[in-house]
Computed example of a mutant assay.
Amino acid sequence: MNRVRPKLFLLDDWEGRIRSAPGARRLAELAELTVLDRPLAEVPDEDLADVRVVLAIRERTRFDRATFDRLPNLELILQTGGHAYHIDLAEAERRGIAVALWRSHDACEAAMRELTFALAVAALRRFPEATRAGDGGQWPGLLGGTLRGRRLGILGMGLQGRAVARLAQAFDMDVVAWARPGGSTDAADGIPRLPMEELLATSDVVSIHLRLSDESRGLLTAERLRSMKPGSVLVNTARGAIVDEDALVEVLRNGPLRAAGLDVFAHEPLPADSPLRSLPNVVLTPHIGWTVEEAFAEFAEGAAGQLEDYLAGKLDPAELRFPLPADRGRPDLVGGVAR
């Protein structure tokens, strides 16, 4: 039987961590691996004609109709994330392109919840003001606050939210979570569920851990931001579009917010003229919640496992954005479909 390895392009490995990870060796055994040293847009069309698999690093490359047109034989996107905001999923499904979502979570989840508390502490202890004063040769007597004894309100009690709740209890925080409309207020995890209005009005720190969806987009409106507890802190490591960013600037300038710790923004990269950059009570990080060395090793290993399963016709349907076409992932053809 003639078993030809599919051609696989590794995209956007800016840090060089995927190509050097042990999982990359497995990928090279399973496929003809090419590590791009430039954006996909700069690759000639003729070099893309026989690419069947791409390994995408989070949201760094957008897959729209024009991109798919340049990849006429693409059949599988190994997506190192639990979502696919940057992929035109309807177009991928129409073309029969499988999208395999990320199945390794440990390192990224740990990194993101640790950043949540780093941002909260930095905001409460006024790190931006202290740093700017120190850079100017000053030695300011800034009065900050501790996490201990404060209330943390969590928006989103999925995997990440639950882990943040456990860590918050280790900081001796009082933890509450948002009771979604129609949801139970008597949770088995022992974390009280509150209506949105009560959570915002009583929480000293509000932390967002929601997926971006039609329900969550714009969830924190101007009205809700203005209703937050005076002197409170907002932390967002989820998605910038969940918050009305213009209104956030207003409440950071005029109250009631004391400060914010933000890793995500409505438009990324954050524009150079964004007022968020000049506010003294904002801690900004450039969407680095997931960028840790351990996560890239997981990406490579997870992608290799998914590719191996796909080529054997055994890829778990739960890892796919939509069902795999019936003629894909056939074990008699490495690379799936005979084109």
Rank of each mutant, 00 (worst) to 15 (best):
D172Y: 05
V176S: 12
E245C: 12
T221P: 10
Q138F: 15
L119D: 12
P331L: 00
L324K: 06
V53K: 09
G136I: 00
A259E: 07
T221Q: 00
I18M: 12
R226F: 01
G240L: 04
W14R: 14
L199R: 01
D50H: 08
N281E: 01
W290N: 08
E42R: 10
Q79F: 09
E223F: 01
L143E: 14
D189P: 07
D106I: 13
R52W: 08
G158V: 01
T131C: 14
Q138V: 08
R5P: 04
L167N: 11
I57Y: 11
G16A: 06
T146S: 13
R150T: 15
A21Q: 00
R70T: 09
D204C: 12
A338V: 07
T185A: 11
L124R: 14
L10D: 09
E109H: 10
R150K: 15
G313I: 07
V53Y: 10
G231P: 05
V175T: 02
L101H: 03
L27F: 04
A272Y: 07
P286M: 09
A304E: 08
C108E: 15
L30C: 04
T80H: 12
P6G: 12
L167V: 08
A133K: 03
L10V: 15
V99N: 04
G305M: 03
E197Y: 05
H287R: 13
G313F: 04
R113A: 05
A41C: 02
E114C: 10
L200R: 02
A98Y: 00
G161I: 03
L284F: 04
A107N: 01
D45P: 06
A90P: 05
L200P: 00
P140N: 05
G261Q: 04
H83V: 15
A133F: 00
V235T: 00
G336E: 03
G302H: 10
E114K: 02
D37M: 03
A90T: 14
P280L: 13
P323F: 10
A133P: 04
V282L: 08
E293D: 15
L119A: 04
A110Y: 11
M157I: 09
R62C: 09
A98F: 00
A170R: 06
S207P: 08
W139S: 14
F322L: 03
D189Y: 07
R38A: 15
V205Y: 03
V243Y: 10
L147H: 05
R321I: 08
N254G: 14
V283L: 08
A122Q: 01
A130K: 09
S278N: 14
A297H: 07
G96W: 01
R151P: 02
R224C: 06
V337F: 13
L76D: 13
L167Q: 14
V176G: 02
R113M: 01
L212I: 03
A318H: 06
E319W: 15
I77D: 04
A300L: 06
R193M: 13
L115I: 04
H267Q: 14
